[in-house]
Design a protein around this nucleic acid. Structure first.
Lengths: 210, 210
DNA sequence: TTTTATCTGTAAATAATTTCACAATTTTTT
DNA sequence: AAAAAATTGTGAAATTATTTACAGATAAAA
């Protein structure tokens, strides 16, 4: 099976969320309608949906309920994936709060920090442990996905701990750019907030020139 | 002058940060070294740097100090850009804390919320006003860049307020996908955390199959 | 029923991005 | 000085992503 591009996966994730909203309004949706509410084009939507093996009906569109089910089957893990998050400052708390209960197949099971005031408490309903306990917890709870929302200078060490403990995916919210060898076979998602701000500044400059 | 792609801008932002770290260690850097620490390739680095009109020296590389200056001149606004942020929950606070003083040419001058307990206080040193005051403040402080870190259902209304008030760039951290007409000429950066998580879940599934 | 209108799925074309490959250049070595 | 070694800048090729275009399918209208 050919792998599907990251872009397509991102769009499928977005389509599903838009479809869940539209479901309240109607039963069927056309590719051009889905495109409109997803900042995309009809052709792009149809191309993306091709990967699902779910066929729409000409002149009628896609049955929203079935399409959601199909995207879910394609995207979601078969069993619930446990997720941990390291660094419970404001950003970590935001992610904990935001994410809890949002995706049924992703379960935030533990968070870690080195602040003794946080260790031992529940944060947004998730138990907080000392960073030292992370490797053990990752193995114990069979965690495949780790989120880093620590300070920048701790990022590298945390990622190494995670990989050594057997993590399969890392989502890094710090601006420290991780560099993971391909041989490790770990999926890495960098969310580079600094770059986003600097990009906005650059294109603002460009826009103002016009 | 041909416009430079968003990807290139993101990488230039990253190069600059890596270079600032390397500056402490050495004076010159080769394209393959910069590539290594930026998750890129030597050819890609050289292509990106072409846009700057700054030439490296064969067998010696790029003078880090000059390269940083060049990237800055290219990326940064000529004058300080004022930035505002709407929604001061955990995420908003994280952004305020994270960003304050980090980029000298970007200044977070105000934040907005509807929570009366926050309005009137300073958060991470930034004054918080009621959302109602946003349009006036944007005009008054000549703000071009707006950040949305509100709840999802408020996103659309906030973006419309921002655009009406004359904002040129919006960075949207909520998972509500904004749709801005091209004619508005507003740069939009969506940071879709849900998609990032779902992508990680998908590629984890893929990795485990292998 | 038959016709008409319009939407899907996908092959082909186009556009964007990345990588390759190498002449030109500069430093280092002899 | 001359030769050798290594790196840059960039045209060309390769790859990846998006858009176009249209045959085939289906629902709605006549």
């Amino acid at each position: 099976m050919n792998s599907v591009s990251q872009r397509t996966i991102e769009r499928l994730s977005l389509y599903r969320r838009r479809l869940m909203i539209e479901l309240a309004e109607m039963d069927y949706i056309f590719s051009h309608q889905l495109a409109k509410i997803s900042n995309s084009t009809a052709a792009q939507v149809r191309r993306d949906l091709m990967h699902l093996g779910y066929a729409g009906v000409p002149r009628k569109g896609y049955k929203i309920k079935d399409l959601i089910r199909c995207i879910s089957q394609f995207l979601d893990p078969a069993k619930i994936e446990n997720v941990v998050i390291v660094g419970v400052g404001n950003l970590g708390k935001a992610l904990l709060t935001f994410f809890t209960g949002r995706r049924p197949k992703l379960s935030l099971v533990a968070c870690f920090d080195i602040d003794e005031n946080k260790v031992g408490t529940d944060i947004a309903g998730v138990p907080c442990f000392h960073l030292n306990e992370m490797p053990q917890k990752i193995k114990e709870l069979k965690v495949n996905i780790g989120v880093i929302s620590s300070t920048e200078n701790a990022t590298k060490a945390i990622s190494e701990m995670m990989i050594a403990a057997g993590i399969k995916s890392i989502i890094n919210f710090t601006c420290f750019p991780l560099n993971i060898a391909d041989s490790e076979n770990v999926f890495l998602e960098q969310i580079d907030i600094t770059a986003s701000f600097e990009k906005a500044a650059y294109f603002t400059k460009l826009n103002l020139k016009k």
